[in-house]
Design a binder for these strands. Sequence first.
RNA 1: UCCAGCGCCCGAACCAUCGCUUCCCGGAAACGGGGGGAGGAAAGUCCGGACAGUGCAGGGCAACCCACCGGUUAACGACCGGCACCCCAUUCGGGGGAGAGAUAGUGCCACAGAAAAUAACUACUUCGUUUCGGCGGAGCAAAGGUGAAAAUGUGAGGUAAGAGCUCACGGCUUGUACUGGUAACAGGGCAGGCGGGUAAACCUUGGGUACUGUAAUGCCAUGUAUAGGAAUCUUUGAAUGCGGCCCGCAUGAUCCCGGUUCCGAUCGGGAAGGUUCCAGGGUAGGCAGCUAGAUCCCGGCAGUAAUGACGGGGCCAGAUAAAUGAUGGUAUUGGAACAGAAUCCGGCUUAUGAGGCGUUGGUUUAU
RNA 2: GGUCAUGUGGCCGAGUGGUGAGGCACAGGUCUGCAAAACCUUAUACGGCGGUUCGACCCCGUCCAUGACCU
Length: 134
Amino acid sequence: MSASFSYGRQEKLKSRAALELLFAKGRTLSVFPVKVFYLAKPADRGTVQAGVGVGARYFKKATERNRIKRLLRENYRLHKEALSALAVAKGLEVTVFLLYIDKTMPEKDILPQKMPLVIQKLVQQLHEMATANP
RNA sequence: UCCAGCGCCCGAACCAUCGCUUCCCGGAAACGGGGGGAGGAAAGUCCGGACAGUGCAGGGCAACCCACCGGUUAACGACCGGCACCCCAUUCGGGGGAGAGAUAGUGCCACAGAAAAUAACUACUUCGUUUCGGCGGAGCAAAGGUGAAAAUGUGAGGUAAGAGCUCACGGCUUGUACUGGUAACAGGGCAGGCGGGUAAACCUUGGGUACUGUAAUGCCAUGUAUAGGAAUCUUUGAAUGCGGCCCGCAUGAUCCCGGUUCCGAUCGGGAAGGUUCCAGGGUAGGCAGCUAGAUCCCGGCAGUAAUGACGGGGCCAGAUAAAUGAUGGUAUUGGAACAGAAUCCGGCUUAUGAGGCGUUGGUUUAU
RNA sequence: GGUCAUGUGGCCGAGUGGUGAGGCACAGGUCUGCAAAACCUUAUACGGCGGUUCGACCCCGUCCAUGACCU
C-alpha cells in the first residue's frame, strides 16, 4: 500500500516534447486555484505521468514558486490513487499537468481540500472519454 | 528598566510517520539497507580570476580601464596600515571621500556685476581744449550695493595719482640640498615666484587591457542535401588572416567561348570562386565538462593589521520540468525574517524576524 | 544562464550643466436653448538614494522597475 503514495521518477512528466504536445493538443479542466491539462491515449500498459507548474508572472521569487510546486506535488501524491487505478483498468497512457493559477500564495488548507475534487473530476472526464471512444 | 535608530554575531531545534534526490552495498529485476542533500547573502551581475574555445611575425592608431604611499592577494576598482586634505568636537578624539595633472592646450562659468581671467565702465592723477556743462589723449589697477567664486593679508615706505613697485612680518607655491621616514610626507634653511574654479568637460602624463562565455567546449548516437532561388563582386587580384581599424606582409580561384585588335587593354556570354538575402530541411537524446578545492574545522606561531606558512583532523549538493516537503508531537505561545545552488572561487552592493553583544538618542522613567 | 537598452504630468513624447517644450486627456470659463467643435485659462512630472559641481533631467556610483536580444 505504501507504494501507492510514492511519486517517483517514472511518474513525473519529463519529456519536453510530451509537454509541448500536451499544451498543444490536451484538454483542460479547472478547479480553482488549479488548472489541469490532460491528455489520454490507449496503450498496452496503463500509466500516468504528471507535472506541476507556476507562472513566473505573478510569483517573481524562486522560493515562492518552489513552495507552490512542492505543495502541489505533495497533494497530488496523496490523492492520485483513483487516477492511476483508472489508467490501469482502462489501459490508458495519461499525461497530466497541474498549473497553479491564483495570484497569491495558497492558504494552508486550500490545496488539501481541492485536490480530491481535482482528481475526482479528472477521473470522471477520462471515464466519459474512454466509454465514448472505446 | 523600557522604547527607537545604527553596527556586528547567529541563521528555524528535536522525535515519529509518509515522500523526493544522489552515492555506496546486496539483488536478474522489483526492491531492501546505509551515508550525503541549499545560503549568509545561493540574489543583484557592479568588479576580479580559474577553466574552455577562437586565435597569436611586425609597426601605427583608436577604444576601454586604473591613478597619494607602502603592504596583502591567484587577481582586483577589493582588503589592511600610513600620509595629505575636508567636516564635527576644537582637550583626548571621531567621521568622510574615484586623492595624478588647472604655468601643456582647448572649452565652459547662467542671473547679478565695471569686470568671470590680463579686461578697463565709474572713480583717481595729469595734459590739452572749452560755449565752463563737459570733451579728447595719457597714466593707474588701490576703491566701487554684485556673486558660489573678484587677482596674496596687515603695516610702513614710495608716487602726479597709484600699484608686491620696494621693505618687514605672515600665507600659498616651485626648485634645491639637509634631517627624520622604505615611501607618500613632515621639519626648519637657501634661491625664485604670487595669473580663480571645473578634468565624475574634452584632454595630457604614467601604468595596463585580445574577444566570447560551461546553453563554452569535446565525444557518442540519430537524421541529412558539397541541394534550390535572387542580387552583387572578382578571375591578376574577389576574398581570407594578423584579436576593433589602417599600413605592411602572407595565403589566394588563378579557366573557357565569341566580337574587336598585330598582341594586349576593352565588350558580351558561360564556368568557377566569394559576399548578402530569400525559401526550405534535420536534430532538441546520452556521456564528459560537474565538483577535492586560491577547500573546511581546530591549534599555537609570524605580522600593528589585511594575511601567511606550519601541524593535526574532515570530505561537505551535483540536479536537468530541475531534489529538502507534508502531518502529528515536544521545547517556548503561533502556521515565525530575507530568501533556493545550476561551472567554480575572491570581493562589493542590497534584503533580513526572534535572540545576543556593542553604541547613540529619548519632551514629564516614556515599561 | 548570459548580454544589452530604457525610465520625464493620467497618456504620448522633445530637452548642448543654468527658471522642463509640445500634443492628447482632465478641470474652469467664453460661445449655445443644451451639447459638439472652436477659443481662452489653470493645475499636474524628471523612478529612489548618494556623490561631483556654485548649480544636476543631463555627469558618476548604487538600488528598483520595465523591455529586448542570444542560446
